[in-house]
Structures are given as structure tokens and as C-alpha cells.
Simulated assay, not measured.
Amino acid sequence: MFRFLFAFCLCAARVVHADPAAAPIPPVRFILTFDDGPSLWRSAPTARIVQQLQDNPVTPNIKAVFFVQTAHPAHGGSPAGQALERQSCQQGHLLGVHSGSPRGHIPHPLMSPEELLQSLQQGIRDIEAQCGTQAGVVRPPDWEFNDSTLATYRQAGLAMLQTDVSANDGKIYGWNISLRRRSHMHDALAVVLRAWQAGKLPVVEGVTPVIAAFHDVNPYTATHMTEYLQILVEESKNVGLPLDATPFYTNTEQLRAATLARANGPGYVCDGASRSVTLRERLFGPPEAMTKGCLP
């Protein structure tokens, strides 16, 4: 049977699984994640998001996980991109591997195991060169993975982190405004609520980490990140999902422990609409592996 778990050390973090028969289940705290950056567009979307995470009326000084393209010349493969990576780390954010290849955003199943391993190892080296450390996690471009890529992640010493809730903001060209962002978040959080009530989500250091995915290359997301934070909090309340007094992570090491716990945990909340859909999936359907790793 396909195994989605990775062996790892939680670095002294205490991880338990919520018992649905025991009350109360610890409240939720969101792990914010961002894909595809760092962005060098003229509108400076990555820098704008970093600024809003630091200074917002919901939870100041939020720490997030950025999955970066470390070698692409339009992203982390340039001095300006590397400066953005350093800035993110200096403010307490974590950097994970999205791609370490100069080819950039290539779905991992389309790469040979040898090329993928080289890309992952290069990504790790690039992040450590800018930050001194890296998050220990990888998120595959377009969310696509299979048994072979999972084996290569393990070989590189990385765990895969997907998401429970996605803003569906992966489109960055043309029409990238979400007219359903509030209703979409409401529906996705309602599914999270059912998993939380059933005790299916792991508990880490007294809270239930729930992963939310965005794209820091999307200029609309960058302009409206503070509103997205408000929507997550407000729609959690509207569906009855209890949030911790600090609804987003503000401590880097707590974020690291929660991120690793979820990457090596039982799976993710999958509602069929909680992630972006690629053109290839629209034409040929989602890969079978995309349903693996979902919580039952």
C-alpha cells in the first residue's frame, strides 16, 4: 500500500493525535505557505506579502513557509531574488524547496529521478547559502507527485508538504482576481471543521496546525494578503472552526515543528477544490497519486 509518511525527528516537539472522544480538541492555528517565488515583478509581490505578514491588524509578525525556485534566473537564481530570500529568512520565515533547477517550475514526475535529486540537492544548498538553514520540506510544482518522486524526496532528506486549504490563486497571468475567495474559503474551512471534529488532524504543542496555500507571485494575492488573513479568521468563525488566540504562527521554531509534523503526519484535508488545477489535469484528469495522502 502506498505510504505517505516520512521518518523524521520532530526536534523535541510534542506531537499527539486528537482523540475525538476527549474534549476539547485543541484549537486551530494556520500554517501559511507561499509557492513559486521569490517574485521579481515590478509590483514586488513577494516583498509586499512579507511586509503585510509583518504588519497587519489580524496577527502582527506572522511567520510563513515560502517554497522557492532557487535557480531560475527570474526568481532565486538572480542576486535580487537571493536578496528577497535573505530578507524573508531574516524576518523569521522558513524557505522550502519548490525547484532547484534552472528550468524552474517543472512538475517533478516529468523529471528523471537523477535530475530531480540534483534539483532538490541544489535547492537545499541554495537556501542554506542565503539563510543558513532550510525548512526540510518540499512542495512539488502543480502539486504533482508519484511513488518515484516521493522516494527521491526521502533520498534528499526532504518531506513533502501539501495543503488543507488553497486560495486557488495559482494563476498569475491575465485574470487573476478571485471573485469567490470568501465563499471558497468558507467551503474549504467547513471541510477542515469536519476533519477537526473527527480528531483526524495532529496536535502539535497544544494547537492543531492547518495548512493554507497561496502564491506569492500572484500580484492580486500580494495586494490583498491582509484581506486574506481576515477572511481566514472570519470564515473560520462562520463555519464554527475554533481558532487559537494566535491564529497564525509568529514563532519560527514553533512553525518549523508544526510544518515537519504535518509533512510527516497522517495526511491532508482534501475537498476536491482545495488546490489549484493544472491545464493538464483539465484535459486528462488528475493523477491517481493526487488522491493519496488525503485523510479518510
Rank of each mutant, 00 (worst) to 15 (best):
Pro140Trp: 06
Gly136Arg: 01
Gly96Leu: 00
Leu110Val: 12
Glu115Cys: 02
Asp126Lys: 12
Glu85Asp: 04
Pro113Val: 01
Pro140Phe: 01
Leu120Tyr: 03
Ala135Asn: 01
Val137His: 11
Arg125Val: 14
Thr133Ala: 12
Gln87Asp: 08
Ile127Asn: 10
Ser99Thr: 08
Cys89Ala: 07
Glu144Ala: 13
Arg125Cys: 05
Ile124Ala: 04
Glu85Tyr: 03
Gly123Tyr: 12
Gln118Pro: 06
Gly104Thr: 00
Gly96Met: 10
Arg139Asp: 02
Pro141Met: 14
Gln87Val: 08
Gly100Thr: 02
Ala135Gly: 06
Glu85Val: 15
Gln90Met: 07
Ser119Gly: 14
Ser101Asp: 12
Gln134Met: 02
Gln87Glu: 12
Trp143Lys: 08
Gln118Thr: 15
Ala135Gln: 01
Leu110Met: 09
Leu116Gly: 02
Glu115Ala: 07
Leu117His: 02
Leu120Asp: 06
Pro113Ala: 07
Gln118Val: 14
Pro102Ser: 11
Trp143Cys: 11
Arg125Ile: 01
Pro109Asp: 06
Leu95Cys: 14
Cys89Gln: 10
Pro102Tyr: 04
Ser88Glu: 04
Gly96Ile: 03
Pro109Gly: 07
Ser112Asp: 00
Arg86Leu: 00
Pro107Gly: 13
Leu84Glu: 11
Gln87Gly: 06
Pro113Lys: 02
Gly104Ala: 05
Gln130Met: 13
Leu95Thr: 01
Ser112Pro: 03
Pro113Gly: 11
Trp143Thr: 05
Ile127Trp: 12
Ser88Gln: 09
Ser119Gln: 12
Gln122Ile: 00
Ala83Leu: 05
Val137Arg: 08
Gly132Ser: 03
Glu115Gly: 03
Ala135Tyr: 08
His108Val: 10
Glu85Met: 15
Ser119His: 04
Gln134Gly: 02
Gln122Tyr: 01
Ile106Asn: 09
Gln134Asn: 12
Thr133Asp: 11
His93Val: 00
Arg86Tyr: 00
Gly104Asp: 06
Arg125Asn: 11
Ala83Asp: 07
Pro107Trp: 08
His98Gly: 01
Pro113Arg: 06
Gly100Glu: 06
Ser119Phe: 13
Pro102Met: 09
Arg103Trp: 09
Pro102Ile: 01
Glu144Pro: 08
Glu114Gln: 15
Leu116Cys: 03
Gln87Arg: 03
Gln87Leu: 14
Leu116Gln: 02
Thr133Phe: 10
Glu85Gly: 14
Glu115Gln: 15
Leu84Tyr: 09
Leu117Ala: 05
Gln91Trp: 00
Leu120Val: 05
Ile127Gly: 14
Ile124Val: 15
Ser88Tyr: 00
Ser88Met: 14
Trp143Met: 10
Ala135Glu: 00
Gln90Ile: 04
Gln122Arg: 15
Gln118Asp: 15
Pro107Glu: 13
His105Met: 12
Leu84Met: 08
Pro141Arg: 14
Ser101Cys: 09
Ser112Glu: 03
Glu85Leu: 15
Gly96His: 13
Val137Ala: 13
Gly104Arg: 03
Leu95His: 05
Ser101Lys: 13
Val97Ile: 09
Glu128Ser: 10
Gly136Lys: 04
Glu114Ile: 08
Gln121Met: 11
Arg103Gln: 13
Met111Trp: 02
Glu144Arg: 12
Cys89Thr: 01
His98Pro: 15
Gln121His: 02
Gln91His: 13
Asp126Ile: 07
His108Cys: 08
Arg139Ile: 05
Val138Ile: 04
Gly123Pro: 15
Leu84Ser: 14
Gln91Asp: 04
Arg86His: 03
Leu95Asn: 07
Gln91Arg: 09
Asp126Gly: 10
Gln122Met: 07
